[in-house]
Amino acid sequence: MTDYKSLRVTQQDRIAHIQINRPGKVNAMDSAFWTDIITAFQWVDTTDTIRVVVISGAGDHFSAGIDLSLLAQAAGRMGNDIGRNAEVIRGNILRLQDSFNAVDRCRKPVIAAIHGYCLGGAIDLISACDMRYSTADARFGIKEIDMGMAADVGTLQRLPHLIGDGIMRELAYTGRVFDGCEAERIGLVNRVHDNHQQLMERVMVIASDIASKSPLAIRGTKEMIRYARDHSVEDGLNYIASWNAAMLQSEDLKVAMAAHMTKTTASFAD
Rank of each mutant, 00 (worst) to 15 (best):
V26S: 14
R8S: 15
E201W: 13
N195S: 10
T46G: 08
V110S: 11
G65L: 05
N85Q: 08
Q11A: 14
A259M: 07
A40H: 13
Y227K: 03
A211F: 09
R77T: 04
S214C: 10
I218R: 00
Q249I: 02
Q11P: 00
S214W: 04
Q12D: 15
S232M: 10
L119H: 07
I15R: 07
A183F: 05
G180N: 01
E201Y: 15
V53G: 11
M131I: 05
H61I: 01
D165M: 13
M200V: 02
A151Y: 05
Q19M: 08
N190L: 12
L162Y: 05
I123C: 10
M261Q: 08
L237W: 01
A128R: 01
D67Y: 14
D3L: 12
A207P: 03
G166C: 11
W34H: 13
R229M: 12
I142W: 06
I37V: 15
T39N: 13
I18P: 01
Q97D: 06
T262H: 14
D270A: 13
S134I: 00
T35F: 14
S232N: 12
S127E: 02
A40K: 05
G83K: 12
L156I: 04
D165C: 09
R51Y: 09
E182Q: 08
A207W: 03
I225G: 02
I218G: 06
G79L: 06
A259V: 02
E87A: 14
I167N: 05
T47Y: 07
M131T: 07
Q157R: 13
G148I: 00
K143T: 08
L237M: 11
I111F: 15
C129L: 06
T221W: 15
L237K: 00
F268H: 14
Q249D: 10
R176T: 00
H196E: 05
C129M: 07
S6F: 12
G166L: 12
A58L: 09
G116L: 00
G236S: 15
G236T: 03
V26A: 15
S250Y: 01
I66H: 06
E184V: 01
M78S: 09
A217E: 02
K108F: 09
G164M: 03
E223N: 08
P23E: 02
A172C: 03
A245E: 06
I167G: 07
Q42G: 15
L71N: 02
I55R: 06
A241P: 01
F268T: 00
L71G: 11
M131N: 11
I206W: 09
D98P: 00
N21V: 01
